[in-house]
Design a protein around this nucleic acid. Structure first.
Lengths: 221, 221
DNA sequence: AAATATTTTTAGACAAACCTAAAAAATATT
DNA sequence: AATATTTTTTAGGTTTGTCTAAAAATATTT
């Protein structure tokens, strides 16, 4: 696989992340994400187009090509493995790992990364709960976790409820929670393990430990 | 401490290494070392001079200022810690570590390096036997090792002989080895632990295990 | 010490990655 | 549908780090 500059890699990674929400990404969106000016985006998109990493038609946004996606997954693999290393081995705190991994991810020796992966015991999720692509670029699309295990502020979609009793469904109906509901856990109260959750376009609500243990969600990236 | 570009760092590091042999470094020397053209060296020296990292007078070579030396030791610390990590933890072979460390050394988070140092148990020498500067830039200037323990092809200076008998001195005289003799161990024969050593401007000679165990040398960088 | 050779610097050019300001295209509003 | 607004692109400029070719300084040779 070819080698790309740090700038190119940052653009590719940012497009990958924005694509998750949106199908196609716009110039202004990407400029905001990367804190550059729209003109710089246009320049880089022309370049990435000639390298066949993005599909791009002037004035009509862009998205990664299959090759571009492969490159993106490689970068994300490096980033998340380093995050895991920093948190697990060097005892960095959860919040500190991202910034350092931003630099380390651009060191592109494949052997380094595959050996690091092995050293770490082939971890499947980084410290934020995000899945780590394997050496072939395969990535766990999402996994179901109980609301109690969801990291704070991580967008997720309710995918399963284990108790289907009338009482449970009544409560879920009242709280306006169902399969497909998008939510984030905002706070966790250690006293009774109750959670404050935020459903899109609603004000935050509280749910008990008992309820939360019966609700499962997938990360929504 | 300020931050320097990858290019600046590579120039500073190269000057540091060339200074060891020579007091002051010349434009052509550095161009050869960095595989760039002399004109590029002049450009960069002007820049490093304004940043007070080198002493430089047009046409009269250059050397690192005290600040420049501090920066160099920081880079060398990062490089050697990563080499140690790659060899010790990721099981890279001796020869492979250098190239990968060339990239990793430019990730400049001080916290990362100090935590890596701690994780590795504060190693004092990298896999090539070179000393690792500590977090204050202090570096073991050299250490005495027995010829048997000298890495292959590592320039060293004879610093001590433990047996001072006439027989020993006779042999040393014959082999033209004395305190201050500069040599490199070129091969090691496992059969009898004899060594093939090369003294500057002479053809290689062989010395027995018994003799080698009584000769001590310091790395000559 | 003058002539020649080598080394180093200057002058000007180029690519990458960014910028500002103006022009063009697409979208929204009335 | 015409106009106004927003978005995107183009045109041209800047900085960093490189280059080539020519000029200047230093070193060597006779």
């Amino acid at each position: 696989m070819l080698n790309y500059s740090t700038s190119e890699e940052n653009y590719i990674k940012a497009i990958f992340h924005l694509q998750h929400t949106d199908g196609t990404v716009t110039t202004n969106e990407l400029a905001a994400e990367l804190k550059t000016k729209p003109a710089s985006i246009t320049d880089m998109m022309k370049k990435l187009k000639t390298k066949k990493l993005v599909h791009y038609q002037a004035y009509h946004g862009f998205r990664l090509s299959p090759d571009g996606k492969k490159v993106a997954l490689g970068i994300i693999r490096r980033h998340r493995l380093w995050e895991y290393f920093l948190a697990e081995k060097l005892k960095f705190s959860w919040e500190e790992v991202h910034a350092v991994a931003e630099d380390l991810e651009h060191v592109s020796s494949k052997k380094l990364i595959d050996k690091l992966d092995e050293f770490l015991g082939f971890p499947r999720f980084d410290p934020h709960g995000d899945p780590i692509p394997d050496m072939h670029g395969r990535i766990e699309t999402s996994r179901q976790v109980c609301l109690q295990d969801l990291p704070l502020n991580k967008p997720a979609v309710v995918s399963h409820v284990s108790d289907q009793s009338n009482e449970m469904l009544e409560l879920l109906g009242h709280k306006k929670i169902g399969i497909g509901t998008r939510l984030e856990v905002k706070r966790k109260f250690n006293f009774d393990n109750s959670l404050e959750i935020k459903i899109r376009q609603q004000s935050p609500i509280n749910i008990s430990e008992q309820l939360s243990k019966n609700i499962f969600a997938k990360y929504d990236e």
